[in-house]
Computed example of a mutant assay.
Amino acid sequence: MPSSAFEAVEALVRLCPPPAAPTPPSATDWAAKEGELGFRLPDDYKRLCDAYGPGSFGDFIGIRHPLGATDWMSLTGPMATIVERQLEVDRAGGTLVPHDPRRLFAVGVTDNGQYLFWVTEPQDAPDRWRIVVHDARGPRWFSFDGGLVAFLAAVLGGRTRVPLFPDGLLDEGVCFTPSPELRPGDEPRIVTVTGTARHGRTLSTDALRVWARANGYELPPRGRIPLRVRTAWERAHPEG
């Protein structure tokens, strides 16, 4: 396993090259972002963001970024707080939550609705934080003994299988897809349904497939719907 954040990111870059013109490192004021969050961030995460910019891995795993295209995918946006509160409600109701929700920080989300968390312990040693994955549609959790970049490299390299992820995740190869630039007003909204905070406008998977095919997107009859298609639908329906 790489012994430093630099080596970890370099290993991921060899496996999954970043875009030719990623967001320049100077675009992110890390000290300001950490001050806004109230805690330091893992070095591997900062190097990852500088190397790749906002986007998703495997057209499936979206990573929150300081320059995320929407409030939901921005590192300092509302996702972490909303998910934390829902986990607290779930835990109080008897649902399995293996970690204190106050120690979980959502750093990513998949196309299928699984959340990636840092377990922020020890809080003053972010480079020791490990990753857990939670299926928001049920009580299943997956733990990885390592940081975010090591997790991405292990999953995309086929060395670690996350049971919550689709079996065909790597069938089309490994790639990084930059987030498309959104127009003003295209950002998904945060809505509340029966007391539970949920993200964005809702559309059934079948209906989304119908819309996608009608608009020129080729999709298989089953399996995950690529992030680019979901984003395109969001852009086409800014008013819900």
Rank of each mutant, 00 (worst) to 15 (best):
residue 139 P to W: 04
residue 88 E to R: 08
residue 67 L to G: 12
residue 110 T to A: 14
residue 187 E to K: 02
residue 109 V to A: 08
residue 63 I to M: 09
residue 122 P to E: 13
residue 177 T to Y: 09
residue 98 P to C: 04
residue 148 L to Y: 08
residue 115 Y to M: 10
residue 60 F to D: 14
residue 75 L to I: 14
residue 178 P to C: 12
residue 152 L to N: 00
residue 106 A to W: 14
residue 69 A to D: 05
residue 113 G to F: 05
residue 172 E to P: 13
residue 122 P to Q: 10
residue 161 R to D: 04
residue 144 F to T: 07
residue 108 G to T: 09
residue 123 Q to M: 07
residue 150 A to P: 00
residue 185 G to I: 04
residue 91 R to Q: 09
residue 171 D to V: 00
residue 119 V to H: 01
residue 184 P to I: 07
residue 169 L to S: 03
residue 107 V to W: 06
residue 124 D to I: 00
residue 185 G to N: 06
residue 111 D to E: 11
residue 128 R to E: 15
residue 143 S to I: 10
residue 91 R to H: 14
residue 187 E to S: 14
residue 161 R to V: 05
residue 142 F to L: 01
residue 127 D to C: 00
residue 145 D to C: 09
residue 111 D to Q: 15
residue 187 E to Q: 12
residue 134 H to D: 07
residue 150 A to T: 01
residue 67 L to K: 05
residue 110 T to R: 08
residue 141 W to G: 13
residue 134 H to I: 02
residue 135 D to F: 01
residue 98 P to E: 03
residue 118 W to P: 04
residue 158 G to S: 02
residue 141 W to A: 10
residue 135 D to R: 02
residue 61 I to V: 15
residue 102 R to S: 06
residue 118 W to A: 13
residue 94 G to M: 05
residue 122 P to R: 03
residue 164 L to G: 12
residue 142 F to A: 04
residue 168 G to V: 03
residue 59 D to N: 02
residue 110 T to G: 05
residue 115 Y to K: 02
residue 95 T to Q: 04
residue 81 T to V: 04
residue 101 P to A: 08
residue 163 P to M: 03
residue 163 P to C: 12
residue 190 I to E: 15
residue 166 P to A: 02
residue 68 G to M: 08
residue 97 V to P: 00
residue 112 N to A: 06
residue 154 A to R: 03
residue 86 Q to F: 11
residue 145 D to P: 08
residue 160 T to F: 04
residue 94 G to L: 00
residue 64 R to W: 00
residue 76 T to N: 15
residue 92 A to D: 07
residue 88 E to H: 03
residue 67 L to C: 13
residue 171 D to C: 13
residue 92 A to G: 10
residue 172 E to V: 04
residue 99 H to F: 07
residue 117 F to N: 09
residue 110 T to M: 12
residue 115 Y to L: 14
residue 191 V to W: 05
residue 141 W to F: 12
residue 167 D to Y: 03
residue 148 L to C: 09
residue 100 D to Y: 00
residue 66 P to Q: 15
residue 97 V to R: 06
residue 192 T to V: 15
residue 83 V to Y: 01
residue 67 L to V: 02
residue 162 V to M: 13
residue 79 M to D: 09
residue 140 R to H: 03
residue 89 V to P: 12
residue 73 M to K: 11
residue 187 E to T: 15
residue 135 D to K: 11
residue 161 R to A: 09
residue 128 R to C: 13
residue 178 P to N: 02
residue 165 F to T: 08
residue 160 T to P: 11
residue 141 W to D: 13
residue 110 T to W: 08
residue 112 N to Y: 01
residue 71 D to R: 12
residue 105 F to S: 06
residue 123 Q to C: 08
residue 100 D to G: 00
residue 171 D to M: 11
residue 163 P to H: 11
residue 64 R to Y: 05
residue 114 Q to A: 01
residue 61 I to P: 13
residue 154 A to P: 04
residue 127 D to Y: 00
residue 157 G to V: 08
residue 155 V to H: 05
residue 140 R to S: 14
residue 107 V to H: 07
residue 69 A to V: 10
residue 87 L to H: 06
residue 135 D to W: 01
residue 177 T to I: 15
residue 151 F to M: 12
residue 59 D to E: 05
residue 124 D to F: 04
residue 133 V to A: 01
residue 64 R to V: 00
residue 68 G to I: 11
residue 59 D to I: 05
residue 171 D to I: 02
residue 97 V to T: 07
residue 85 R to V: 01
residue 142 F to W: 00
residue 114 Q to N: 12
residue 106 A to N: 07
residue 60 F to V: 15
residue 79 M to W: 06
residue 144 F to V: 09
residue 71 D to Y: 09
residue 128 R to L: 15
residue 169 L to P: 01
residue 165 F to N: 14
